[in-house]
Design a binder for these strands. Structure first.
Length: 280
DNA sequence: AAGTGGACCTGCTAGC
DNA sequence: TGCTAGCAGGTCCACT
């Protein structure tokens, strides 16, 4: 589920409320992608720092010695996987079979509900050490980083034979665009998703960077996409799924030229595109 | 190094 | 109505 807009919407919906709060307890349910990596008890009493997002990961700093005293703070790296949602809950203990993590604080109880359990909550002595560091190390640029330019994209795509769609999804060049937004950005940029990444011209790289940024901006403004599970910390759903140009619209008319949208499979994932508006 | 395919896990829907 | 196959927002890892 959650791509960059959903993760960012989630972050914004809970970060300010729990900033400066103290951890009362931490509970893990069924195993997620990786073990927590520490005794849950060690985080009791910790102070919550400013929550950061990197790609589709959230970093929740937890300082045992007060926010400013420790540098850098330890914390939890959280990933929502395919079906995760972080929401504020009313009372301790799972309310359903898919509630697998709870962080109870003096400012509210945060709960991760994740039916497929592809999500993760991993402790790190810092964001730059241990498993968190390893997971973050291979990530590409943030899409709104000023270094994210057509020149950078063109340079990084050079010589790569995979399709441009798969190169976008891989996340080692630019993070944040998952299956929905990669399809949408390629449509906006008028690029055929099957085109070899290394053959995308420099001008088209310029357009693609702008398209990725634009689609993410639009999704963010609509609270993300809620195909099924996604909600922000207060349970609100996103609306971007109602305005996709191609994603999930196989057989329906292209919003630009009315040609039926096509679906194909690339790297075991569905790709949606307009065979007329998107060219090789 | 780059590309491919399998793995993780559960739930929902379309089709027979 | 009930079963089964196929599909779903992610990404790591082993292998060629």
């Amino acid at each position: 589920m959650p791509e960059l807009p959903e993760v960012e919407v989630t972050r914004q919906s809970f970060a300010s409320r729990i900033l400066g709060a103290h951890v009362l307890s931490l509970r893990m349910g069924k195993p997620l992608r990786w073990p927590l990596g520490c005794d849950p008890g060690r985080l009791e009493g910790a102070t919550v720092g400013p929550v950061l997002r990197r790609g589709k990961y959230l970093w929740v700093p937890l300082s045992l010695a007060g926010i400013a005293a420790e540098n850098p703070p330890e914390g939890l790296l959280v990933h929502l996987g395919m079906s995760g949602a972080l929401t504020f809950a009313k009372s301790l203990g799972p309310s359903g079979p898919h509630d697998h993590f709870e962080l109870d604080t003096t400012a509210g109880l945060l709960r991760l509900t994740d039916p497929r359990r592809f999500g993760a909550v991993v402790w790190g002595a810092s964001m730059a050490s241990g498993l968190p560091a390893r997971l973050l190390a291979s990530l590409g640029l943030e899409p709104f980083d000023e270094a994210m330019t057509g020149a950078y994209l063109h340079q990084r795509l050079k010589g790569r034979k995979v399709s441009i769609k798969q190169a976008l999804l891989a996340g080692d060049i630019v993070v944040g665009a998952g299956n929905i937004y990669a399809c949408e950005a390629l449509f906006m940029a008028g690029i055929d998703p099957r085109l070899a990444a290394g053959l995308v011209s420099r001008p088209r790289c310029d357009r693609l960077v702008l398209a990725v940024q634009e689609v993410l901006r639009q999704a963010l403004a609509m609270g993300g996409s809620s195909l099924r599970d996604f909600k922000d910390a207060y349970g609100s759903q996103g609306h971007f799924q109602l305005s996709t140009r191609v994603y999930g619209r196989e057989g329906e008319p292209c919003r630009t030229c009315a040609t039926p949208v096509r679906r194909l499979v690339q790297g075991q994932r569905s790709t949606f595109f307009c065979p007329v508006c998107q060219k090789k």
